[in-house]
Protein backbone atom coordinates (compact mmCIF):
# COMPACT_ATOMS: atom_id res chain seq x y z
CA UNK A 1 0.00 0.00 0.00
CA UNK A 2 0.97 3.62 -0.38
CA UNK A 3 3.20 5.37 2.09
CA UNK A 4 4.39 8.91 2.45
CA UNK A 5 7.80 9.48 0.91
CA UNK A 6 9.93 11.48 3.30
CA UNK A 7 12.98 12.06 1.08
CA UNK A 8 13.14 14.36 -2.00
CA UNK A 9 9.52 14.48 -3.01
CA UNK A 10 7.20 15.97 -5.62
CA UNK A 11 3.50 16.13 -4.76
CA UNK A 12 0.79 16.68 -7.32
CA UNK A 13 -2.66 17.81 -6.24
CA UNK A 14 -5.09 17.10 -9.07
CA UNK A 15 -8.38 18.92 -8.49
CA UNK A 16 -10.15 19.02 -11.85
CA UNK A 17 -12.54 16.65 -13.60
CA UNK A 18 -10.94 14.59 -16.40
CA UNK A 19 -12.30 16.07 -19.64
CA UNK A 20 -13.67 19.59 -18.99
CA UNK A 21 -10.15 21.05 -19.17
CA UNK A 22 -6.67 19.68 -19.89
CA UNK A 23 -5.51 20.16 -16.29
CA UNK A 24 -6.16 16.58 -15.23
CA UNK A 25 -4.07 15.37 -18.14
CA UNK A 26 -1.31 17.85 -17.29
CA UNK A 27 -1.20 16.47 -13.74
CA UNK A 28 -0.51 13.04 -15.18
CA UNK A 29 2.19 14.37 -17.52
CA UNK A 30 3.95 16.04 -14.59
CA UNK A 31 3.73 12.87 -12.51
CA UNK A 32 5.15 10.67 -15.27
CA UNK A 33 7.92 13.13 -16.08
CA UNK A 34 8.89 13.38 -12.38
CA UNK A 35 8.89 9.58 -12.07
CA UNK A 36 11.10 9.17 -15.14
CA UNK A 37 13.59 11.50 -13.44
CA UNK A 38 13.53 9.19 -10.41
CA UNK A 39 11.73 11.64 -8.14
CA UNK A 40 9.44 10.31 -5.42
CA UNK A 41 5.91 11.27 -6.40
CA UNK A 42 2.79 11.70 -4.28
CA UNK A 43 -0.34 11.86 -6.41
CA UNK A 44 -3.27 13.41 -4.56
CA UNK A 45 -6.83 13.55 -5.89
CA UNK A 46 -9.02 16.24 -4.36
CA UNK A 47 -12.20 18.12 -5.20
CA UNK A 48 -13.51 17.38 -8.70
CA UNK A 49 -10.24 15.51 -9.29
CA UNK A 50 -11.79 12.43 -7.69
CA UNK A 51 -14.07 12.19 -10.75
CA UNK A 52 -10.95 11.17 -12.73
CA UNK A 53 -11.02 7.82 -10.93
CA UNK A 54 -14.62 6.75 -11.57
CA UNK A 55 -15.02 3.27 -13.04
CA UNK A 56 -16.73 2.53 -16.36
CA UNK A 57 -15.56 5.69 -18.17
CA UNK A 58 -15.36 5.62 -21.96
CA UNK A 59 -14.25 8.89 -23.49
CA UNK A 60 -14.37 7.61 -27.07
CA UNK A 61 -17.93 8.97 -27.00
CA UNK A 62 -16.43 12.48 -26.89
CA UNK A 63 -13.41 11.67 -29.11
CA UNK A 64 -10.97 11.71 -26.18
CA UNK A 65 -8.68 9.22 -24.48
CA UNK A 66 -10.06 7.73 -21.28
CA UNK A 67 -7.79 9.26 -18.66
CA UNK A 68 -8.33 6.63 -15.96
CA UNK A 69 -6.90 3.95 -18.28
CA UNK A 70 -3.61 5.85 -18.28
CA UNK A 71 -3.81 6.48 -14.52
CA UNK A 72 -3.88 2.70 -14.07
CA UNK A 73 -0.27 2.57 -15.30
CA UNK A 74 1.10 4.77 -12.49
CA UNK A 75 2.48 1.75 -10.61
CA UNK A 76 4.57 0.77 -13.65
CA UNK A 77 6.23 4.18 -13.40
CA UNK A 78 6.99 3.51 -9.76
CA UNK A 79 4.25 5.85 -8.52
CA UNK A 80 2.60 3.99 -5.70
CA UNK A 81 1.83 6.84 -3.30
CA UNK A 82 -1.66 7.66 -4.50
CA UNK A 83 -4.06 9.44 -2.16
CA UNK A 84 -7.72 10.33 -2.38
CA UNK A 85 -9.32 12.97 -0.18
CA UNK A 86 -12.13 11.27 1.71
CA UNK A 87 -14.10 14.49 2.19
CA UNK A 88 -14.18 15.09 -1.59
CA UNK A 89 -15.58 11.60 -2.10
CA UNK A 90 -18.18 12.07 0.60
CA UNK A 91 -19.30 15.43 -0.81
CA UNK A 92 -19.92 13.74 -4.16
CA UNK A 93 -21.74 10.76 -2.69
CA UNK A 94 -18.95 8.43 -3.90
CA UNK A 95 -17.29 5.48 -2.16
CA UNK A 96 -14.07 3.57 -2.94
CA UNK A 97 -16.26 0.96 -4.67
CA UNK A 98 -17.12 3.53 -7.36
CA UNK A 99 -13.44 3.99 -8.25
CA UNK A 100 -11.32 2.14 -10.81
CA UNK A 101 -8.03 2.73 -9.00
CA UNK A 102 -6.69 1.37 -5.73
CA UNK A 103 -5.46 4.18 -3.52
CA UNK A 104 -5.27 5.35 0.07
CA UNK A 105 -8.32 7.26 1.26
CA UNK A 106 -7.00 10.03 3.50
CA UNK A 107 -8.21 12.96 5.58
CA UNK A 108 -7.42 16.64 4.95
CA UNK A 109 -5.07 16.48 7.93
CA UNK A 110 -3.05 13.73 6.29
CA UNK A 111 -2.94 15.67 3.01
CA UNK A 112 -1.61 18.68 4.92
CA UNK A 113 1.21 16.52 6.26
CA UNK A 114 2.05 15.18 2.80
CA UNK A 115 2.17 18.73 1.38
CA UNK A 116 4.38 19.91 4.23
CA UNK A 117 6.80 17.02 3.68
CA UNK A 118 7.11 17.79 -0.06
CA UNK A 119 10.00 19.57 -1.74
CA UNK A 120 7.66 20.87 -4.42
CA UNK A 121 3.93 20.86 -4.97
CA UNK A 122 2.06 21.12 -8.25
CA UNK A 123 -1.49 22.20 -7.57
CA UNK A 124 -3.75 22.08 -10.58
Amino acid sequence: MSEINSSKTVSIISRQAPYGSNRAHQSLDIALAAAVFEQAVNYIFMGDGVYQLLGNQNATSIQSKTLVNALETLDLYGIESIFIDSQSLRERNLTPKDLALNASIVSRGEIAKIVRASDSVFNL
Binding site: Y19, N56, S61, I62, S64, D98
Partner: peptide
Protein backbone atom coordinates in the same frame (compact mmCIF):
# COMPACT_ATOMS: atom_id res chain seq x y z
CA UNK B 1 -25.70 10.93 -23.24
CA UNK B 2 -22.23 11.17 -24.82
CA UNK B 3 -20.93 13.16 -21.85
CA UNK B 4 -22.42 10.68 -19.36
CA UNK B 5 -20.74 7.73 -21.11
CA UNK B 6 -17.36 9.47 -21.22
CA UNK B 7 -17.43 10.21 -17.49
CA UNK B 8 -18.60 6.79 -16.29
CA UNK B 9 -22.02 8.11 -15.25
CA UNK B 10 -24.34 6.29 -17.64
CA UNK B 11 -25.33 3.77 -14.94
CA UNK B 12 -25.13 6.24 -12.05
Amino acid sequence: REDLIARGLIDR
